[in-house]
Design a protein around this nucleic acid. Structure first.
Length: 429
DNA sequence: TCTGGGGTCCTAGGACCC
DNA sequence: TCTGGGGTCCTAGGACCC
């Protein structure tokens, strides 16, 4: 520990799946190897995962698929709809493997995890990193990169280089000062974890262009111009680990379900189906973390890319008592939607948001007599959740969600659910 | 024709109180 | 006519992340 109470002896690994969604697709369709492949966002909108061949074509992350489709085709490549069921399942498999390499595991996102490696001898780390990489590859088919250093932020930097330079064979241990300095000097500030567009611009204006310069910036400057988060970033670059490993994810404080539609939607009835469907999904998430929501918001957007009258608005309501009971939530949400809706607009997106979320056991006592948890409704909700978990989503669903669902998002190029649907299992020829 | 979705944390400023 | 100072809580919006 140093004088400000930070340890400079932690060892942290960041394991990051390479081009994760694309890699998932390639596991089950080897014909995609070597070709430009990208996975599109919901509604077949923008590119959210790109193979190296797509990156070589200089097509940026987040670019609209339709603008680049011709070029990709010309190079023998493909665009795929996103298959989140598949990616979620593959992610769980990867994380299961990583869990075998350290008791300290923080699942940071669908394709990234931090591992605490304290107690390992430094000279063994490189071999250990490679072992992690080989094992994940062998057991799941997913290629990953491993970065190891003194703090999460530095582990991110190490990972950045491990991924880009084939000489590192996918694993970089960055512990000695000389190596850290070299890496940081070559790294533009915008590539640092926690430095976004605004900070990037500001720092550049102040002649801080690379990570080494930020690491060595005067303390008064940092104090004055950066938030507490920015300050932590600088300390982390200096090798002081001050963003702890977070092994048990906290329950969500807000839950959002929103989607763009596959077409323009004007009719109230169709919007009611969509909102009802989103509430159903959001309430499932709520119950999965044993929570209830005290506040509900419904929002509606027109197409911001299209000329014509715009209407973006939200309606909200306190839920008293807080609840996670889908039928009550649908009822309230549809009332809010009817307040919100105006005829004559072409809507492109709707969504619902739960906030003021609390654990179901923490509902105040004076509200308890009307709590949904106390009566048969809780048993009904749990039963429906169980059926849908075992037999597939929407085996049991609410009539208000509709059957035709013409507004549903486009997923024209969807791959099969190889790992989660019996009928989509791969067959040998 | 076609441009995603889901989160967290921090700060500033206003309202309110004593 | 003069018109303090400190604290808390809440909210909206910004910034960032994947």
């Amino acid at each position: 520990m140093n004088k400000i109470g930070l340890t400079d002896q932690d060892i942290v690994a960041l394991v990051d799946c390479n081009n994760f969604y694309v890699s998932c697709e390639r596991v089950f369709d080897p014909s995609l190897e070597g070709k430009p492949v990208a996975v599109l966002s919901n509604n077949d909108g923008c590119l959210v995962s790109r193979s190296n061949e797509i990156k070589a074509l200089k097509i940026p992350m987040g670019a609209p698929g339709f603008k680049h489709e011709a070029l990709i085709r010309k190079h023998g490549g493909v665009l795929l709809s996103s298959n989140y069921t598949l990616y979620g399942d593959m992610s769980r498999r990867v994380m299961d493997v990583l869990g075998k390499f350290s008791p300290e595991l923080e699942i940071y996102s669908i394709d990234e995890a931090f591992l605490g490696l304290n107690g390992f001898r430094v000279r063994d780390l490189e071999a250990y990193g490679r072992k992690i990489r080989e094992t994940v590859r062998k057991w799941t088919g997913i290629p990953v990169s491993v970065g190891i250093s003194r703090s999460k932020t530095l582990a991110k930097v190490a990972n950045h280089y491990a991924k880009r330079y084939s000489g590192y064979c996918g694993c970089l241990v960055m512990l000695d000062d000389e190596r850290i300095q070299k890496a940081l000097e070559k790294l533009p500030v915008s590539e640092i974890w926690g430095i976004g567009r605004q900070y990037d611009k500001f720092l550049r204006q102040n002649k801080i262009a690379n990570a080494w310069q930020l690491r060595n910036a005067p303390e008064q400057f940092i104090d004055h111009y950066m938030t507490s988060v920015g300050h932590k970033t600088v300390l982390e670059l200096q090798g002081f680990s001050c963003i702890d490993l977070d092994e048990a994810p906290a329950p969500k404080k807000s839950i959002v379900v929103s989607r763009s539609f596959g077409k323009q939607v004007s009719e109230l009835e169709e919007l009611e189906e969509a909102v009802s469907t989103y509430i159903t999904r959001a309430a499932e998430k709520l119950r999965a973390q044993h929570s209830v929501a005290g506040h509900l918001m419904v929002f509606l957007n027109t197409n911001r890319f299209k000329e014509g009258p715009q209407y973006n608005n939200a309606a909200q309501m306190t839920l008293s008592p807080p609840t996670a009971y889908t039928p009550d939530l649908i009822k309230t949400a549809l009332e809010l939607l009817r307040d919100l809706w105006l005829p004559g607009f072409e809507f492109k997106k709707a969504g619902v948001m739960f906030s003021e979320i609390m654990h179901e056991d923490d509902v105040p006592l004076n509200l308890i007599e009307t709590n949904y948890l106390d009566d048969e409704r809780k048993a009904l909700a749990d039963t429906i959740d169980r059926i849908n978990r075992h037999c597939g989503r929407d085996t049991v669903f609410y009539a208000s969600s509709g059957i035709r669902q013409d507004w549903q998002m486009k997923r024209a190029r969807l791959s099969p659910s190889y790992t989660t649907r019996w009928s989509d299992l791969m067959k040998t020829k």
